[in-house]
Design a protein around this nucleic acid. Structure first.
Lengths: 248, 248
DNA sequence: AACCATTTGTTCGTATGTATA
DNA sequence: TTATACATACGAACAAATGGT
């Protein structure tokens, strides 16, 4: 009963229709299924993946819901076009300058801010004492009305008192830091990983459950090497790719 | 019935216990759950995530199966230490030099090789004519007996005839390139994304279904800027993180 | 030893979701 | 649409192991 060439797995906590939906997404990403063109008929897909036609239908229904496909009775199911943003990441990366040319409108929205004691990890990154007060900003990056990033950022509360107000007003980290005498800064280190989006990410970026996010954990420093900012950013993998430029 | 603080989602194709397992993995990664220490009791986890204790138990069972946790009746459930490899990625990254100090044994296994006509994308990257012959290498990177990467690499067949033999013999891209007079090379560009592992990745790297892979697409060039290699590499997100070094 | 609280392990039952035919 | 099988999730017990008092 199981298709020989089938690569879907049962009993692993991910339902078949979700796995098929992911396979279709992969097929679109890899060019197997061209954009703005019809998908193979449900029967063909069912055979290709070694599942029942109903299972394919569930997968397609989910992707239609997610805005990836459009189904038309009697005609077929079509792949809608959706290009990913290419987000440059390097020593001098800035949110707004990075996306120049790709979008017409972008900014960072401040979702919330708070002051809290620094955890060990944050204290070490910022070079302050553990438990010292830090300001945490929760932000969402937007481009052309779509959320393209979701970040949590920590600053030394003593050094950057009131930065949340500056952030809310300017909508830019770079501009806010200028008010504290920081005219330039570098990305000292970045650690990159990936995971499923959590509920917060899903809500903040309007993603579908099961979406994958790229996660960067970065420390920004002044030109003198003084750490000023510690940040974890999440990028939806379906909308954004990260580009490492050589000379950046 | 639904926990207020719950951040898991139902009816999305991913079972609750799998989501809880992912949350626990996240907790370990973020330091919420310390390594070599007891996890909170099942009851506490169930309450924290707003699910039944059985659901937490299913998640724990999966993670025990995956070698992440160890459960002991009457004592608790413990987080085994399993540091993720931190894989440096930058202009001068090399597989074996990059992991120095983190593992005792590493090499690249050549899974298969073939010669094929270049697609448009590969031809552009390598600066050759579309349809010209290219050598494709399928490789697996291993460290301490565990697969940590799976890559597909293309070389100009005219310029690097026989590189598959050199690769099989030396187990190193860098050493193989030396035989063709390339003593040094740079990573010109890297594009980073993430997706679910496909069947091939799962089999080649012995991953659990649903695993996430980091994907890099890179072009390597000689010091003169001549493109020599086009590669797509997949790294299991649960075992590897990518580190962008500032000066690299 | 006896007892206790804590924590994991097991077994019922019941309801709902998923997948096939 | 219906039927069937299995997986998932919850709830309420009870059993077994551990580390104390």
């Amino acid at each position: 009963m199981v298709g020989l060439a089938s690569s879907v797995e049962r009993r692993n906590g991910v339902s078949l229709w979700r796995q098929i939906a992911d396979k279709i997404l992969q097929g679109i990403a890899s060019g197997d299924f061209a954009e703005n063109a019809a998908l193979p008929p449900e029967i063909a897909l069912a055979e290709r993946y070694g599942v029942n036609r109903h299972t394919v239908r569930s997968a397609i229904a989910a992707l239609v819901q997610e805005g990836v496909l459009r189904a038309e009775q009697g005609r077929g199911t079509f792949v809608l076009s959706r290009k990913r943003l290419s987000y440059p990441i390097g020593a001098r990366t800035r949110f707004s300058t990075g996306l120049q040319g790709q979008t017409s409108e972008r900014h960072i929205a401040l979702l919330s801010s708070s002051t809290e004691p620094a955890t060990k990890r944050i204290a070490e990154a910022l070079g302050i004492a553990k438990g010292a007060a830090v300001i945490r900003l929760e932000t969402r990056g937007e481009a052309d009305g779509h959320a393209v990033s979701r970040a949590t950022t920590w600053f030394d509360a003593k050094r950057f008192a009131g930065i949340e107000a500056a952030m809310a007003e300017t909508g830019s980290i770079t501009a806010s830091l200028k008010r504290f005498g920081i005219n330039d800064y570098l990305r000292q280190s970045t650690v990159l990983s990936a995971r499923h989006a959590d509920a917060d990410d899903l809500a903040a970026m309007d993603l579908q459950p099961g979406a994958i996010v790229l996660v960067t954990v970065a420390v920004n420093v002044t030109l003198d090497g003084e750490p000023i900012q510690f940040a974890e950013s999440r990028f939806p993998a379906e909308r954004v790719e990260l580009r490492l430029s050589a000379g950046d």
